[in-house]
Design a protein around this nucleic acid. Sequence first.
DNA 1: GAGCCGAATAAGCGATCGGTTATCTGGGCG
DNA 2: CGCCCAGATAACCGATCGCTTATTCGGCTC
Lengths: 322, 322
Amino acid sequence: MTLTQLECFVLVARLGSVTAAARALGVSEPAVSSTLGALRQHLGDPLLARGPTGMELTSAGRRLVPIASEMIHLGAEAQATVRQARGAAPELRILASSTIAEYVVPSLVDTFTKKNSASEATVGVATAAEMQAFLQERLADVALGPKLTGDGSVQLESQPVMRCSLQLLTSPRSRLAGARGLCATALTDVDWLVDPAGTDPSSPVFQLIGKLRVPDKRVLVLPSQTAALAAAADDDAGIAPAVTHLAAGEVRRNSVVPIDVAGFPLPMLWHVSTLASDRSSRTAWSFRRFLTTPTATQIMLQPSRGVSPGRFKPPVYVTLWN
Amino acid sequence: MTLTQLECFVLVARLGSVTAAARALGVSEPAVSSTLGALRQHLGDPLLARGPTGMELTSAGRRLVPIASEMIHLGAEAQATVRQARGAAPELRILASSTIAEYVVPSLVDTFTKKNSASEATVGVATAAEMQAFLQERLADVALGPKLTGDGSVQLESQPVMRCSLQLLTSPRSRLAGARGLCATALTDVDWLVDPAGTDPSSPVFQLIGKLRVPDKRVLVLPSQTAALAAAADDDAGIAPAVTHLAAGEVRRNSVVPIDVAGFPLPMLWHVSTLASDRSSRTAWSFRRFLTTPTATQIMLQPSRGVSPGRFKPPVYVTLWN
DNA sequence: GAGCCGAATAAGCGATCGGTTATCTGGGCG
DNA sequence: CGCCCAGATAACCGATCGCTTATTCGGCTC
């Protein structure tokens, strides 16, 4: 019985699927499957079995979850405690959607750690479901992205920190560029150029694609928002959904232009989420408060220039820090 | 960071020495040393350093102990919980001094599990220091042997369950056999045939040997008390300290005879120890209560015949059950 | 009944674990 | 001063871990 096995188990239990857990951990599905298999054999119980709504816990599995979860948490705490005892800065583990991670997290972290010199940040990219699981397992301290609700058993606090909007952008020379009052159905037979956050089922972009019934082959996932915008700048390459103020620079330079579609720009909110204050780390809490300050708002409005396409090393999926 | 590493660390911290921890775990000293080294490297702190009174915790190590201890405990609890959820009998992990393990534990366990069919026992041999460490780490549920005091931080409950005495036995044809009113100094130039419990610094036998200043080369550690008595039965092989009522059969058969030394038979007590009732498992508590019943006393007075020498597979040192 | 999707299994690979014996090192102590 | 003891290190070995790709299995849907 290793901590890795328990981590796998808990993640599968929380996310309801081996595949999702594998993606969250950034490994292949068989890796998780076999790790889970080892734990099953060791404990002599299937722990999880396929059910109509994903993997469902057996009676033994249900009792194991809280214990395993606590062990994992203590593992992280052990590391943090030793770090602190040695006088090192406490670490702040931040999760963000790929878009936010790309444009605003670096400068936010920069400013925060300068202000609050006693902390050291690591950043990972995750989907909303992963954020929720990781926060609940205390494998991350704070998440930036869509609103998280918690799953009832563990309370998450999610608070809006930025009001912004979504636009659809395309090349100024595209046939869509000049059109007025476009109908949504006209958008289903062009390529959609999205960043990794567009694959998160709870992201506005994903939901938009779903609502419009854009066929899968029309959705191209690029490694970053910057790359998506660069691709959209090519004539007739397709359309790129983007956060208005983050793409403002590209629009000003006229490399892309907004498409006029009813309902756009689509308003949206960025949220910051942590565990309830009494279970959250002091540093996480302090970072969260920082995000509501005007300084942080300024930073989020004036994004660091997106990393040039190809240079943006996609952290792709989060690695666990232990 | 593995559970094994944490286990090593905690055990070294509790026992105050790498060597002692290695013995408790039944492995070589370098095994523990290097496992500890791996943890040190992983956490970037020495955790423990040599001090005048054994290994001493660094500040980081001091904070790590309770966390690591809790993780280990949760590991054991995870297994127990899953076992129980599957409907299996809860397990009872018993530690005993080698003498007690040899003569009375098997029948005690037999009777107890028959009475209390919902439990399954495993037995290990340990010294008093190991018993204390294992109980505190909840790596064992109950210990049978000398009185344990606890080390202040964790409270152990130790209760006498058997009043008995220690005799010195030798071959009826030995030159010591007939002597009357022997002086203790006469005993330092014969071989002492002791069982593994005689190597436990807190055992009466060990203390006796120390008080008499018997030279090390005069002390022969045999794999069991039965073996020691068999050896003592040889002419002039030496003397074997033994619990009076356990050796009664051998004495009745005249294969060995008691030596007449002032102060002998030396009274002694067997104790049963557990964690305080609120932290101890139900099964452990129930076993402990069982030991105070007349049934259990009867069993302890009428030992199962010692296993024949050589056939007694010495569990030597306890294995951790996880 | 055929196809599909997600989990499980197979096979293989390199790194690490956990263990051994033998040796080195560094502090008390006679 | 040199011995001795206990911890650290070296060198080595086999088992397991953790991960991969490819394939098989089992339910569901059409």
